Every structure is written in structure tokens, then in C-alpha cells.
Computed example of a mutant assay.
Amino acid sequence: MVNAAYFQYGQKFNKISILGGLRYEYTTVEIDQFTSVFKDIKNYGNLFPTVNIGIETKEGENVTIGYNRRIRRPRGRFLNPFQSLSSATNIFRGNVDLNPVFTDAFDIGYLKRWEKFTLSTSAYYNVSKDNWEFIIQNTGKETENGNEAIYERFPVNLSTSERIGFEFTLTFKPFKFWNINSDFNIFHVSTDGDYTNPDTNLTTNFDFKNTSYFVRLNQKISLPGKTDIQINSNYSGPSENRQSKNKGIFSMDFAASKEILKEKATINFNISDFFNSRKRMSTTLIPGFTEQYSEFQWRERQISVSFIYRFNQTKIDKKKKGGQEFNGLEEFEG
């Protein structure tokens, strides 16, 4: 249960604008196992300030400076102490003592507008304390055939994590019918912390440094005949930490929409994960034991076609009344 109250205040002085806010949260977490006497209740209250300063250096150009404090709460799966079997050799269990992660975030940004370009850049620094780390250890048990060891994975509040990065966003309209929006983010993460297994007294060091990036490219093309096409491409660069290495992931979504019957109807065609490449491929390093390679795909490529007919109403009428089209093309936007 999360209860909160907040207030905001903003003021502008010539070309300088200030927006500040303060949020207070009081959280209660109760875990009750009805089949035993186990019961755990945690209460904690926290303040979350926010300060943003904007400076308009000239028309169409401004600089921003900001700070805010954030919270990331553990989901129910991370708190559930009962084991879940993801495969014959891998077990996941939650941790009832897991606490939220608090992050202090600082950033400085620059925005510039031209006739066909909008450029936005930001340099940021985040520091998180009691960061979650997922411990992987050998249970000492084997599968039924006795050929493979069984490993257990669980989260703990362990490390301090620092992230420093740079983000570059560009909006470009080369022609009236073609909109391009791209984003590039590169960041360096450093983590430090140690975990000691209470059963074996084996200590694992989580000190690690890694640099990674991700790229996003969205394009919307308006063709003659009331036809729109949108292509969204994403690439997350390879990353690693002390216990795992993840390969890069590329994915692309495609959508097309055409108005027919004097704009009373719409045909939508969508392909989600065009190349069927949205897969998480990782190698897990288990200290003193072995390496495990795994692939995970949440959903394979999907192709869908839909037909929408608006009775006594055209798409233009719907927009004038403030309605929103939830066809496949619009869903990709934003």
C-alpha cells in the first residue's frame, strides 16, 4: 500500500523558469504466509524532491538543469519466497527482505530548434544505493537424470551503482510527408559490492564497469491515397555485469494504415518484430562452477490485419471531437 502527497511550484523570471516539487510517500508492505506462522510487515516513509531550471538563451534555444530522487519498488515476484521453475536446471525465488532502490538523478540538457530540425541533448549522472543484484548459485542438487546441476537465482540489496551517460535526440522532417525521430544513448555503469553465501561462506565480488548504448529510429511516411506507413527500429548494444554477458538486440516493427470509403473506414496492417530478432541471448557465469547460455523471446513475430468502420462518423469528425484512433499505426507512435 502506497500513500502519497505532493506539491509543485513554478515561477518565471524573464528568461529563467524554475519548477520545484516535493512528494512524500508512506509505504506498507505485508507478506503473510497463511500456512505457517510467517508474517513480515515493513513500513517506510520517504521524501522525493524535484528541481528543474530552464534558461532560454535565445529564441528556439534553451538550457535545462535538473535534479530528482526516484524509487524503484520490488514487484510481487521479487518478494515471493516460493520457488518458480523456469527450466529443469534453473530456479528463481524472491526475497521477502528485499527493499526498494533509491536513485539520485542529475542532468543538464540543451535544446535547439531549426525549421526542419529539433536537436535535444542531455548529460546525466545517476547514483543508486542498495541496488538489486541477482545472485546465482549452485543448489548442490541435480536433475532427475543426474546429469546436470540445478542453479538458483534470487535478488538481494547489495551494491552501489553509478551511471553516467549522454543522450542525443533528433527530430527531422526532410519533406512534408516524411517525419524522422531518432535517439542515441550511451552510458557507463560502475558497480561495487560483495555477497557472502551464508551456507558456504563463499564471497562473490560484484565490482564491475561496463559501457553500453542503445539506438532508436522511428519513421512515419504519409503517401498519396490516405496511406500512412510507420517503421520503428531499435537496437540495444551488448552489455555485461559480474555474472552475465548479454548480446545486442535488434528489432523492427512495421505498420501501414489506409483510409477507405470516404474516410469512414480504415485498414491496418502490422508486423511486430519484423525480423523475429527480439531475443535476449545471454551467458551466465557461475563462480567456481560453469557457464550457461540462454535465449529468451517474449513473443515471436506477429502479423495482423484489422478493419475499422465508423458509423455516421469520419476519422476527421472523430479528431475534431477529441477522439483517438487506436489502430495499429497510432499505437506505434510515441
Rank of each mutant, 00 (worst) to 15 (best):
E259Y: 11
I53C: 04
G140N: 10
I267F: 07
P155R: 03
S251Q: 06
R280S: 11
I308D: 14
K15Q: 11
L119N: 15
T50S: 14
E300M: 13
I53F: 06
G322N: 07
S86D: 15
T171S: 11
D199Y: 04
K264L: 07
E144M: 13
L119T: 15
R69P: 01
D228C: 01
Y195H: 07
F168E: 13
Y213W: 13
E144I: 03
A265V: 08
I55T: 12
E162C: 06
F296G: 02
T191D: 14
N147W: 05
Y110R: 01
G66H: 04
E133S: 13
W132R: 09
F106T: 13
T139L: 11
I91R: 14
T196C: 00
K176T: 06
G328N: 06
G165E: 14
T139E: 06
L261K: 05
Y44K: 14
F7S: 06
S277I: 00
E162L: 09
S120W: 08
F78W: 08
Y110A: 01
N210W: 00
N145V: 01
S120Q: 15
N210L: 00
F7K: 07
L285C: 01
F275T: 14
R69Q: 03
N95A: 06
T191A: 05
T284V: 00
T28S: 09
S159N: 05
E56D: 11
F168P: 10
L85Q: 14
R242I: 04
P100E: 03
L79Q: 00
G54S: 13
T28Q: 08
N80I: 03
A123G: 12
G322V: 09
T27E: 04
I135Y: 01
K319D: 10
S236M: 05
E25F: 01
N43W: 07
K15W: 03
S86R: 10
P238T: 04
N205S: 08
E142S: 10
N276Q: 14
T35M: 14
S86N: 12
E144R: 11
Y309Q: 12
T200R: 02
I65V: 09
Y213L: 07
F34Y: 10
S122I: 15
K226G: 06
K209G: 11
Y213E: 01
T118Y: 09
T169W: 06
K209M: 01
E240C: 03
K173D: 15
L285G: 02
Y309W: 12
T211D: 02
T283I: 05
V101W: 03
S17R: 02
L217Q: 07
T103P: 11
D273T: 09
T57P: 02
T139F: 08
L170Q: 12
L111P: 01
L22G: 08
E167M: 12
N201H: 04
K116H: 12
I150R: 05
R93Y: 04
E325Y: 04
T64A: 05
G21W: 00
S86E: 15
F254W: 04
P49E: 07
Q324E: 13
A4F: 08
Y26F: 09
